[in-house]
Design a protein around this nucleic acid. Structure first.
Lengths: 216, 216, 216, 216
DNA sequence: GATGAATGAGTATTCATTCAT
DNA sequence: GATGAATGAATACTCATTCAT
């Protein structure tokens, strides 16, 4: 049992862990996940040793950052689900909000390294599946509402979603941030298009994402 | 003077250069642009020494791969421009075709390293601007044709375009490939949406891309 | 003053000390004297802090383990001396028994590190000298009895003795244990051989061991 | 195929390899097999990189040193076999010579680390078996000649042999060297003792050494 | 020119030891 | 006193780049 590290750690240790995670998230976002561990430690205000005590190696750290962010997305998604009565609006909000909210985690993914690390991690997958389950609800609901084109699945959304978020790196400029939001807008229009261009293949469902493993 | 390497090199040297470029493109696509130089040399069937004679350092190689790909995109774009009478159709074709055609260059960009290298390289920029000029024509034409929503600019398209292509990495599975095409489809619908959701900010033009430097 | 730690410590502190010593002895025997201090602490069921309170550094611990074992050997040797009337039999018993009894201390020596630590430590040396004194008695007695070849000294025995014991590491198998006993047997026959092959050099005495410092 | 590295390497590479091996052998003998790789490289007059190119990690180097030495022992053993008509004399010579000849390899074994590395390595085992085969011949022959006690096997000899050699570390002093020779002498007398003390267990044969893996 | 060997700076990681809780 | 968290120096190992063959 990994137990809940949130509750198990001594107060100071806990604080360090959080600082490391926060520092890593920021730095990964700015410089990718290959930055020297020492730089992360320094940014977190701890020695490398402490970093390594908490995260046995870089992969563990990348994983932890990813998990942390996925968790936030999930919490968000659930909050939205609870608040919105319209599935379409819920989906829309999730996509739009996440752009601003979740830059970081996706950023961690702008790297082969990170992708490889995350793929195949069962915990990451579990979390992802929970998120997808929520999205799937949104999709079905929005399609029933007649606002979402019927020829897309949660998988399509997830890929689109991941694709976009993945870009948002360091919001280095106003243009970049604006661009992100505009992309989402265009995509949402594309999603609600009726009739739209005929899409090739078939709707991609949450299940389809597993073997692909290249996305989300 | 770098002169035109295409014409300056002896036949065998030329062959080596091409092999290295091809190998690098493939390997970058699969494993990112941080792979050991030796691996690239091996894949190209030459010694590292030869690689270094041709490309003074990794950056030069990354640049060369990028240039090579941009060139292909440009050639494509121009061919399409010559063939299609409808600007919208031309734009559509370019976006769709490029998914399959240009994986590699974008792939080279799935990395901070590559981004940094490419940014600020005047030759790369020049080439990019030529591509953007063509796209800008398409955009204006398509808007005149009344098919493209008027609130987008070539910059929007470029970012969208780059965003998507960037995902397509190693098409590890059928689903992944299908997903790519579907994303493009949805996006195209989003682009032609009339009326669409109101987009935030203002149209992003080709010029806007320079300072942002985070995209395209 | 280190005083006699046996009497100075509080009951629980004493227990800790003993546990650490026992754990260290075992672990040194199995994995050599370079194992992480933390591993020893864990095996002893205490925190590293406690270990360090008791033994200021690794060297101190190695020394303590060695001392502890030398003491046991000395006690044994004296007990044997008291019980046996024949010096040769006493010598024989000491050698044979020690194989089973004293694995550990020798084991601690299967390492440059340990050797270096122990060499030059005056307490260790004192203890060793006491043991050698007893052995020297045995040797002289056995030679007077006419059973031990006259061309060997206590030093020869000590080296032989150390040599053999040093091998016995983790008695991973029955064969290994049997082998140890057989070696001793052969060696004892070698020692009693009359006439034996002529030995090179001259008898090595207890005194000779000091400068050599590589043995015993 | 590891091919014969002796023949495959470029002249300069070959020279470096040999220097590294020689340096490692010496340093291992003096300071054990845990010395910093850099120290070995420096002693060999090469950069660490070169060391690592030739031997992918420390284990590989330890293995190589061991192999090199085993080979020398085997060559010696065969030369002796060819020259001596008496098996007993051959055995004796092998044991005596090896003390002087093979210090190093055994030295490499004065360490848990080394033991663990070597155990289970098929090439090392193969070489060891070849040596044992020669010894086995000597043993049988010497017993037929009536000079070697009949209750010992090649395994006994090997263990005794290994045991002794293992001690001889850096011949830090004349006494140490003399001691080594004297030990061998005593052991040889022990081996030829007739009648000797009854040995416990049964003769240890070459085959017995495999599972034990703790010796030779 | 081509090759691949050598170099050594750059990083990851470990672990002895100290110190706050 | 006990504990285990934090520190950072010591080392292993990798890989870009240079250079002898």
């Amino acid at each position: 049992m990994t137990a809940d590290p949130e509750t198990t750690l001594r107060a100071d240790a806990r604080r360090n862990r959080d600082q490391i995670l926060a520092a890593a998230k920021t730095i990964f976002a700015v410089s990718g996940p290959e930055v020297p561990m020492e730089e992360i430690a320094r940014a977190a205000g701890v020695g490398v040793g402490t970093l390594y005590r908490r995260f046995p190696d870089r992969d563990a750290l990348v994983r932890a950052v990813a998990m942390d962010n996925f968790e936030r997305v999930l919490i968000d998604a659930r909050a939205i689900a609870a608040e919105e009565t319209s599935s379409w609006r819920a989906l829309e909000r999730l996509l739009r909000q996440s752009v601003e909210l979740q830059l970081s985690i996706q950023l961690a993914m702008v790297s082969h390294r990170a992708l490889v690390i995350l793929k195949g991690d069962p915990e990451v997958r579990r979390l992802r599946d929970e998120i997808l389950a929520v999205v799937e609800d949104f999709v079905r609901g929005a399609q029933a509402e007649g606002v979402l084109r019927p020829d897309v699945g949660a998988g399509d959304i997830a890929i689109l979603f991941a694709t976009l978020l993945r870009q948002m790196r360091a919001k280095s400029s106003d243009v970049a941030e604006m661009a992100a939001r505009r992309c989402v807008g265009i995509m949402i229009d594309g999603l609600s298009a009726r009739p739209g261009t005929e899409l090739p293949g078939r709707p991609i469902m949450a299940d389809d994402l597993d073997p692909a493993a290249d996305h989300s």
